[in-house]
């Protein structure tokens, strides 16, 4: 009986890899069941459960918070998100990052003092190199 290779990966690492008879995933347009030799398909996933029926007939469950589903006849890849995503949530995260920046850099001018930056970096570097040299001499 034909089987499909299933890989679930996220940006932070591999979550599952193995052979299966059947895979179910929560696609954005409705749940899909994937049997071997499925036509190539690419779709977005919404938060939900991924169910994998492996070759021993055992079932594996994974909760994913969304991502992408890529299907090739003998290969199913789920690119899982590492966190709950959504326009509003992302917006909130962006706002947070912006507020953090404003908080941390209150009263700082918008122009980087390049001349001073270079001077300071050159000095720091020289000090570092001098320390290295001194160490070599001992």
């Amino acid at each position: 009986m034909p089987t499909i290779q299933v890989d679930i990966v996220s940006a932070e690492g591999e979550i599952y890899s193995g052979n299966a008879n059947m895979v179910f995933a929560p696609a954005r347009m409705g749940e899909v069941g994937i049997a071997p030799r499925h036509a190539p398909l690419l779709t977005a996933l919404k938060p939900g459960e991924v169910r994998i029926e492996d070759t021993d007939g055992k079932e594996h469950f994974f909760y994913i918070t969304g991502g992408m589903l890529e299907i090739q006849p003998h290969l199913v890849t789920i690119l899982a998100d590492t966190a709950l995503r959504g326009e509003q949530l992302d917006e909130a995260a962006a706002l947070q990052a912006q507020q953090d920046a404003e908080e941390a850099l209150k009263g700082v001018s918008g122009e980087t003092d390049l001349a001073r930056a270079q001077l300071e970096l050159a000095e720091a570097r020289a000090r570092y190199q001098a320390a290295q040299k001194l160490k070599g001499k001992r």
């Binding site: 932070e12 590492t82 990052a97 918008g110 003092d113």
Partner: peptide, 20 residues
């Protein structure tokens, strides 16, 4: 902060295991 710059966003304290 010391040298100025047009900073629009920051992310700090990622810890030992940065997360997306």
């Amino acid at each position: 902060r010391r040298l100025g710059g047009n900073v629009v966003g920051t992310a700090t304290h990622l810890g030992d295991k940065p997360h997306v």
